[in-house]
Design a protein around this nucleic acid. Sequence first.
DNA 1: AACTCGGGGCG
DNA 2: CGCCCAGAGTT
Length: 347
Amino acid sequence: MTFLDKNNIDSNLLHIGNKLLSWYKKNARDLPFRQTKDPYKIWICEIVFQQTRINQGLNHYNNFIRRFPDVQTLAEAEENEVLLYWKGLGYYSRAINVHKAAQQVMNDYDGVFPSEYEEILKLKGVGKYTAAAITSICFDGKIPAVDGNFYRVLSRIFADDFDISNSRAFAYFSELATLILPENVGDFNQAMMDLGSEICKPKNPLCGECPLRENCLAYSLNKISEFPVKTKKVKSEDLHLKYYFVHRNGQFLVRQRKDDFIWKKLFEFPVVIPEELEAFSKEVKTINHKLTHKNLTIEISNVEVASEPAWNNFIAQNQYLITDFEASHEKSFPKPLENYIQNKNQK
DNA sequence: AACTCGGGGCG
DNA sequence: CGCCCAGAGTT
């Protein structure tokens, strides 16, 4: 049974939101973007931490802000440098979009970050969640920033079995959130995130420390583990990639990927080589790399080109980029290829 | 409305 | 080894 179907909604649920706020005042995590209302910094942090744990993205966020401290600096940067600062984070379209959006702010808003929800929503890579987060945190907007934490916390508080894999879940839990929405929505949104990640965790939640324990229906029913309900399971497919690490005198060949598949616009090694070079192929390394939706097997043939004419000929007939171990640090490679290069360099 | 896009950490 | 994470864009 979903809560909004129950027809017995307590008209005064606001004390739940306020209780959460008072907990947040004492227990807020000390994060680098908590001391500012600069919409640029809040925007960047919201993009960085989409589908990304705080611990995983914290260094990337700090390095990104240090290199691109404001919208104009980001807008004027080269896309490849933005991608470089996204290296290893995953979901690389975020980097491409955040760069384009910075140029949107410069061109369409005269370099001033928009303050209206509908305008912020127009920025590339900014969806309903992120627009709500920015407006509430920076501009006192009264919109709940519904994310995975909201799904989990609200479904437990109301013992609500609305399927979070349903495409209407965002609208449903947004409505549910408004029932407990206090005056300070910016802090409320951040409080839900802290509660969701520190207390109301997906597994083994710390209900003993939860400020909303007395208001939590799932807890009182001893059914915490049954919420949230998620029916749709993600399947992983097998994917096989074959690369040639073509090198000579410390130099090796790379090319940039397209933006239509995995690892958008990241760099990789040649995928095919002529038979003449195949003869130089030595050991083959097989790397198993796990992505969320794919079981990836990467086969990399080590090709040390012993013949200088063959090397020059191959370069002349293809559009590969020549790099070396030093310069490769200025390109963004997928994690497994990054590891492969580092391993080669140590030999 | 369903699919796709990374990588890390946890039980 | 499956699940989840400060979701958004595409089809």
